[in-house]
Design a protein around this nucleic acid. Structure first.
Lengths: 153, 153
DNA sequence: GCATAATAGTTACATATGAAACTAATTCAG
DNA sequence: CTGAATTAGTTTCATATGTAACTATTATGC
């Protein structure tokens, strides 16, 4: 079977398509909270992680939202300077510090969450309920498989 | 129906999941060509566009791969310096310049394409053929819908 | 024709990001 | 115990990216 010339059709190439879709969605969402609340995507994700999972160390945040510790550290620095996040050093291990949203941070979080969920709802309107479930399941499997490939290529 | 507190479950939130999946896949692919060929994701995409669509202007490239003209300009500058891309100014409109891969660029492109396609094949092994078709169709619809939302929110 | 607007592409600046070096605190080996 | 190795987090540096200003060329209105 002489498959001499393989053609890369970029517009059908899965990694490319995933990248373009994710970027479009991420930017659309960012449009909703960037201007009114002055948050970057990174900063918002840290707030979302803290809003959902209560006290977390910086490392915990990084694991939750798949972000390296440097990025977390920088986002937290900005959020603390703005009084949106509070830090408390662990008394038993002073390398660690647990982070949580401040009252102001919780208030902002509470205003952004509905925007984010509304956007998700409107995005999912492209799909029926069954299709949505199907897409979620398939994308989960792709993710798990991509991780497995990366660890043992 | 008192839906007082809406919770954002980040790990189920579509924009977040798409972003993490796309990033993982993009990095995995980058691992395959970054070290042997010294290309960034941006540079490789420009080469892929030129490899597939023959002579293109910088603007054409940008439209094809959803990249702004500044990013294209910078990638092309690097690729030309490395002798991978050739530029020819349009004689009838000297603002334009058509771009194509050089012989060296074509050779490199021909070596990377199979790596990329092999990766795609192994990634798709997470899904059956039907599931793959389903995922492709659903993600296309999500993309089209996200674009429509962005233009007319 | 000629001033004005539009287009292709580049450059400059400001910000974002990643890798690696670094600091501080804790754990572990002997 | 005490010095080496680990861990949490920050800082530094080099690179990447986006926005806006700029250059050069072509199209348009009058």
């Amino acid at each position: 079977m002489p498959n001499a010339l393989q053609a890369l059709e970029l517009e059908k190439f899965l990694p490319y398509r995933l990248s373009v879709l994710a970027q479009l969605v991420s930017e659309s969402l960012h449009d909703l909270y960037a201007q009114p609340y002055g948050l970057s995507v990174t900063q918002w994700r840290v707030m979302a992680a803290l809003g959902r999972f209560a006290p977390l160390t910086a490392s915990d945040v990084g694991q939750r939202i798949v972000m390296d510790k440097v990025a977390v550290s920088r986002a937290v620095a900005v959020l603390m300077k703005r009084g949106l996040v509070e830090r408390a050093t662990d008394r038993s291990d002073r390398r660690r510090a647990s982070l949580k949203l401040s009252a102001r941070g919780r208030a902002m979080h509470a205003r952004i969450v509905p925007l984010a969920l509304d956007y998700e709802v409107s995005l999912y309107k492209a799909l029926s309920l069954d299709e949505r479930r199907s897409f979620d399941a398939l994308s989960d499997r792709l993710f798990a498989h991509a991780q497995a490939l990366r660890e043992a290529p």
